[in-house]
Design a protein around this nucleic acid. Structure first.
Lengths: 113, 113
DNA sequence: GGTCAATATAGACGCTAGTCGATGTCATTC
DNA sequence: GAATGACATCGACTAGCGTCTATATTGACC
């Protein structure tokens, strides 16, 4: 899985048509956001004070199996929206705010607002 | 298909955890963005001077069948990212910049940038 | 009104993605 | 080092999605 540096060099959507490669990279990230469970996970991590959340806390917030949560965390991590760190028995996930910021900038249409 | 007014009242992702309903509505929009063809269509429409593009022009930009393009346009329209207007034989699609702006604001993490 | 062109809809098909139970891995503790 | 707990990986199942061909719809023009 490539590190996905498409975001850094993508112009706003409204400036010029995306080429196929840019679109493919971006679509990966948006697809990761296109699931309600993953959106909730992301907002749990993003809004948690301290900036990091243990997997067990995330799992407790849903009525889904632990492997399913683990799968969603992997998807979010693969597209660079989350990072993880193991400390002792626990794994802590943390937001990559730059990623969100890049997406936000990309969608920021001049005509909008 | 409901009109999807989730966006207007959703706080930034990082402020507080989304509830299931908010997440479901948002996921629909992001899922619509989670396809490379749809992202390219969106950027074609968004970057086109005059603000509107004929379906035939979009179809010409891809090596996909006309029904497939029509399907993608419908998906983007259903989540409120595009609107369409028929004039004579042609149908013109136009961006809804407020939608993009709402998404952009939603992803705009305080910690980012 | 018949024909043609532009677009949408319907139905089918293959592949992807979300979920689960079972199992593996790693660290802690006794 | 055996057992336990936290998390990841694997394999299977099902539903949904992207694509196609075929067909319907809508409007223009003769």
């Amino acid at each position: 899985m490539e590190p996905l540096e498409v975001l850094q060099c993508s112009p706003p959507l409204a400036r010029e048509p995306l080429d196929a490669e840019q679109a493919a990279g971006l679509a990966r990230v948006f697809k990761a956001l296109g699931d309600p469970v993953r959106l909730r996970i992301l907002s749990i991590v993003a809004s948690h004070e301290g900036g990091e959340v243990c997997v067990c806390d995330i799992t407790d917030a849903f009525e889904l199996s632990q492997p399913t949560i683990s799968h969603h965390l992997k998807v979010l991590k693969d597209v660079g929206l989350l990072t993880s760190e193991r400390r002792a028995s626990w794994v802590y996930y943390r937001l990559v705010p730059e990623r969100l910021g890049e997406l936000s900038a990309l969608l920021d249409t001049p005509a909008a607002v």
